[in-house]
Computed example of a mutant assay.
Amino acid sequence: MCIFHINYDHKSVLLEEAIQALNINSTGVYVDGTFGSGGHSKLILSKLTKQGRLLAVDRDLSAIKIGKIIAEQDSRFTIIHSTFSKIHKHIENMRLTGSVDGILLDLGVSTLQLNDDNRGFSFMRDGPLDMRMDVSSGQSAAEWLSKASLEDIVWVLKTFGEERFAKIIAKVIISTRRYKPIVRSIILSKLICDIVPYRNVYKHPATKSFLAIRMYINNELEEIAQVLEDSLGMLSTRGRLVVISFNSLEDRLVKYFIRDHSCVVSIPPKIPLTDYQIFSQYKSKYKLKDMGKLMPSKKEIERNTCARSARLRYAEKLMI
């Protein structure tokens, strides 16, 4: 059995960079699509005047409880229990479609979830193998593993975790569940740790499998794809979309979305045209301006190892 020591103290990754990328307008309207413990929301609120407004969203009821405390104390702040795919409906109901100045999405798992033994997100903690972001709906990871076919398990591990040992792990899961239900996170973690032949001192052998199962159970990639598409209608002209991702699948999804809706135009020197005048020629097709990518500094990575895989991409909505 391999032993890994991980520090789960809460530290918002790329916190200052994310807020700077939003280019906060003190009287603007903002959406924090992943409230979590409220780190980003609190900093956004500190930049807003009484006229500013922040809508925070989370599908985790534990996060909603924290958000409600802030909402009771700050009239500028609203917290909503929702998935990504429904955010645009809440914006529509609040009559804010096309008026949002910035949308922030931090796609990492929150400390609240990792530190809760009853959630099953962590391969380092023993608890019920649940993995649902919203425990009030859907099937748990244990329920899915108890009935999924070998082919389905292999597909999930390969597709969402890019796990090279997917077939070996899937076979052991199938054989193990015949005599011992896999209902606790530590059981699954030990099972994987004992059979995966590769050892990396920086990554637990169960990392990819836990990621894959979590993403599948919560339909995460489809939810992300939907909110990205919906952001085009929610944002105001020059509104910012800021996304922090922590794995290659999420990052590619964000990267390609921004690329597919962006127009990269080289403006010749001494030509008296602004970016928006150039982009206006393509307004029927292109809706975003790619503002680039930011990565954590060496200092932040040393302070918080969870920041190693973080990538921040952001874009600005063009005048349509």
Rank of each mutant, 00 (worst) to 15 (best):
K208V: 02
S75A: 09
K65P: 00
T78E: 14
V201P: 11
M295H: 06
K283I: 06
I173H: 12
E300I: 00
L48E: 04
R252E: 04
A315S: 07
V265H: 11
R178Q: 14
K289L: 14
V201S: 06
R259W: 04
Q277D: 03
S262C: 09
I19R: 06
S209P: 02
L104W: 06
R76I: 04
R240E: 08
D101S: 15
I103T: 03
S110N: 10
Y202N: 02
K299N: 10
A307Q: 00
L55H: 04
I195Q: 03
E162Q: 13
G98A: 07
F123L: 13
K180Q: 13
S46D: 15
T305P: 08
I301Y: 06
F123Y: 15
R184C: 07
I153G: 06
T237E: 14
M94R: 08
S122G: 10
D117S: 14
D152W: 06
A18V: 00
P296H: 03
E302C: 02
E163R: 06
A225I: 03
A71I: 11
R238A: 14
N247A: 01
V172N: 10
L157S: 07
N304A: 02
L45P: 09
G233F: 12
H10E: 10
Q73W: 08
K317N: 05
I320N: 12
G98P: 12
L55G: 04
A63P: 08
S12V: 04
M94G: 06
I173R: 09
V109H: 12
L249N: 13
R59W: 04
M131T: 07
A21I: 02
L45C: 05
T27W: 08
R238G: 09
